[in-house]
Design a binder for these strands. Structure first.
Length: 730
DNA sequence: AGCACGCCGACT
DNA sequence: GTCGGCGTGCTC
């Protein structure tokens, strides 16, 4: 009788779609499925997840298996989480190990928990009993014998650290190690929250009942800005916590503000832990462990929080579910909203998608009954939505290089007079999108990308918005040598600020864009400071649309409402509708009605008409009909194949080879379009060519794509990226 | 993803 | 005659 093979299959963070087998050393306990292990890979080692028993057999040709290095002292990933990772990997065509890494991405996992040393009273009497030693014991006695940190004790007793060391050595002091990690503040689901309106109370009761019933369910929670969606889904979170389960609230990163955390604290008595890119390593580790142990009950986080190792997740909220920031666009490509629904299904949890302007996908899913729908009709606190008025730019009589129409300027002046804030919205960073030589027509382009350089006058640089390349603005044209002929063409927020300063010299003008701060935290702080009254005229890109309330803001001016409609993107109309709705929703609070002036060259455009009429249902219905007719998402499915490489000819060659394998896709019911040069045909020196696969619902799109990509594997110098459900078509 | 092995140009 | 470019393939 030979002993059973002591092997495990380990999912490793490699771009290889199968787990690797390892031997478990004799005398070790077999690590359970889901355990985190360190395993040798090539020269080094990596942290992986035990995915099952090894499938190795002597005849497989592998001479020997290398042994696992160590089993990390962390909770194994639960079956529900592993199931989620496997299905997410399958759906997004991502190697399992790379997907699993998202769930093990806390630094220092497996390290012993951080400890601090403390001194308490010892068993022995000090010998000799010097006055200094007596003072030490007295200082401890004053604390009731509670252990103290060495520095603290030494200071309290007025002795040096050496005295403590000597006392500890002879047993006059006891040395203990305490966990340094703070415990998680208990959150009280029974604490009464803010009073709810009847509509809120009804929606909250429905969600509570769904959470209480247990099991999977999905709800689209729809309500205009200020309708109190947050209070409603916090009730659902309270229910999950009351059941002893955990809850996760996902927000677009920029919406994770102190204001939001304070609202949660208002409901539960303390702030919940947060998870986002600016959380420092030690705190990430503490939270990862706290979540795995079930000690952290409610987590508020950005999209990557979706991969935390919850022990018993009862609820996921995806706030601002329509937000494009939920799509992860590099590395592992996934849509956090869709993955949240998948995770909820795997966990037997409720998922709530909340938005004032739902995505068409979620709207359709609610229409077909795949999701339930809850509407919060009126604006909480009796304020009304802002009045939306178009300003026809064709008749506005704007002077050259001016972007603020007289009507808008007049409205801003009135707000300044009244001591109220105005917001001018323009979704363009920098000073001007194009810098042109008026003598020879030369314009500035990025040396590494197919993109114009954007002038950033505050920084005095020309910047590439694709790769970050920056160069100083020259005094003379580099092509023809003409000086003083370089002309900034078109508007950016910085230029708008210049115009605003000229129009209203006494006003405090502030620019809010992602260029203004070097971390997400700093940016949030900046938004908050301005919202609290730090400026009279706020000029911002789309970051002002997200999440934050501007209590004293009564006017919104949309500088160029047509901007988003210019690219032929599938979702251009939807995005424009959502963005303008969200931005205009910033105007007006409880007692001050708001006004939104929408500057456009095409007020008769159906999208503009829908925005102005505020008729969201009609807009969505029309958009849905158009997408259905085109077989576009969510009625059909798309996947993009992007080939990229430094050698343009090789990239095209690889793209044509893939296109030649189209019959493989056609046979499975998937149509292939392309290849075409990507709209941004070169980024960071890499040429990019796109293909688009389109399938009706119900067709095994991923399966077909896998076979197709395998049949025409591009050479190593060309990278193939498969993007299932692409959101961006660049 | 890293990393090593493997065939063709500028050097002590 | 070698050192080194990165193109190709592997990692249990």
């Amino acid at each position: 009788m030979s002993a059973p093979p002591r092997t495990v299959a380990v999912a490793l963070p490699l771009p290889v779609d199968h787990p690797f087998d390892y031997a478990v050393p004799e005398g070790w306990d077999m690590p359970p499925e889901g355990a985190l292990v360190e395993a040798p890979v090539g020269k080094g080692s990596a942290i992986g997840v035990v995915w099952g028993p090894g499938r190795w057999a002597p005849q497989d040709g592998v001479a020997r298996l290398r042994p696992v290095v160590r089993v990390l002292d962390e909770a194994p990933l639960a079956p529900a989480l592993r199931g989620f990772l496997a299905r997410a990997a399958d759906y997004t065509l991502t190697p399992l190990g790379l997907m699993a890494r998202l769930a093990t991405r806390a630094p220092g996992l497996g390290d012993p928990p951080p400890v601090r040393e403390v001194y308490g009273p010892g068993d022995a009497a000090p010998d000799p009993a010097t006055p200094a030693r007596a003072r030490v014991l007295a200082a401890l006695a004053e604390q009731g014998g509670a252990p103290m940190a060495p520095t603290e004790l030494a200071r309290a007793a007025g002795v040096s650290a050496g005295v403590l060391k000597a006392m500890a050595a002879q047993g006059a002091l006891s040395r203990r190690r305490l966990a340094r990690d703070r415990p998680f503040a208990p959150l009280d689901p029974m604490r009464p929250g803010r009073p709810l309106s009847p509509a809120q109370a009804g929606a909250a009761a429905t969600l509570r009942a769904k959470v209480a019933a247990g099991g999977y369910g999905a709800t689209l929670l729809r309500g205009v800005t200020g309708s109190g969606k947050t209070e409603v889904y916090l009730e659902a979170a309270a229910e999950a916590l009351g059941q002893g389960r955990q809850a996760l609230i996902l927000l677009p990163e920029i919406a994770l503000t102190a204001g939001f955390l304070a609202r949660v604290a208002g409901r539960f008595g303390d702030e919940p832990p947060q998870w986002h890119s600016d959380v420092p390593p030690a705190e990430r580790r503490r939270l990862w462990r706290g979540v795995a142990r079930g000690e952290a009950r409610l987590v508020v986080g950005a999209r990557s929080a979706l991969f935390l190792p919850f022990r018993d997740l009862g609820l996921i909220v995806v706030d601002e579910e329509h937000d494009a920031a939920y799509k992860q666009e590099d590395g592992v490509l996934y849509h956090a909203r869709d993955m949240a629904v998948l995770r909820a299904a795997c966990e037997g949890a409720q998922v709530v998608l909340a938005s004032a302007t739902p995505s068409l996908e979620s709207w359709v899913n609610a229409g077909t009954g795949k999701y339930d729908r809850l509407d919060l009709p009126e604006r909480f606190g009796a304020a009304s939505l802002p009045r939306l008025v178009a300003v026809d730019l064709r008749r506005a009589g704007l002077k050259r290089d001016r972007w603020i129409s007289p009507a808008l300027a007049q409205a801003v002046a009135e707000r300044l007079e009244a001591g109220e804030q105005s917001l001018l919205f323009l979704n363009r960073r920098g000073y001007a999108p194009l810098t042109l030589c008026r003598a020879c027509g030369h314009f500035f382009e990025c040396p590494d990308c197919d993109a114009r350089l954007v002038e950033h006058r505050f920084r005095g640089r020309l910047v590439c918005h694709q790769c970050g390349h920056a160069e100083p603005v020259p005094a003379a044209c580099p092509a023809c040598g003409a000086s003083d002929r370089l002309h900034a063409t078109g508007p950016g927020v910085e230029r708008l600020a210049e115009e605003a300063a000229a129009l209203w010299p006494a006003a405090r003008v502030a620019v809010l864009s992602s260029d203004g701060a070097d971390s997400a935290v700093a940016l949030r702080a900046q938004v908050e400071a301005i919202a609290e009254g730090g400026a009279d005229v706020v000029i911002g890109t789309q970051i002002v649309a997200k999440g934050h309330n501007f209590p004293n803001l009564t006017l919104v001016g949309v500088i160029d409402a047509d901007l988003g409609l210019q690219n032929g993107d599938l979702r251009a109309a939807e995005r424009t509708f959502q963005l303008i709705r969200q931005v205009s929703g910033r105007a007006g609070r409880a007692d001050k009605p708001g006004l939104a002036l929408v500057q456009t060259v095409a007020p008769e455009h159906p999208v503009m008409q829908a925005i102005l009429a505020g008729d969201e249902a009609a807009f969505l219905a029309r958009e849905a009909a158009a997408r259905r007719a085109a077989g576009a998402p969510p009625f059909g499915r798309l996947a993009a194949a992007i080939l990229s490489g430094a050698d343009e000819a090789k990239v095209w060659e690889a793209a044509k080879a893939l296109a030649a394998q189209a019959p493989l896709l056609e046979a499975a019911g998937v149509r292939l379009f392309g290849p075409v040069a990507a709209p941004v045909s070169r980024i960071r020196g890499r040429w990019r060519v796109r293909l688009l696969a389109k399938a009706p619902r119900g067709v095994g799109l991923q399966e077909a794509l896998r076979a197709w990509a395998a049949a025409a594997r591009p050479p190593a110098s060309v990278r193939l990226t498969l993007d299932v459900d692409p959101q961006s078509f660049l």
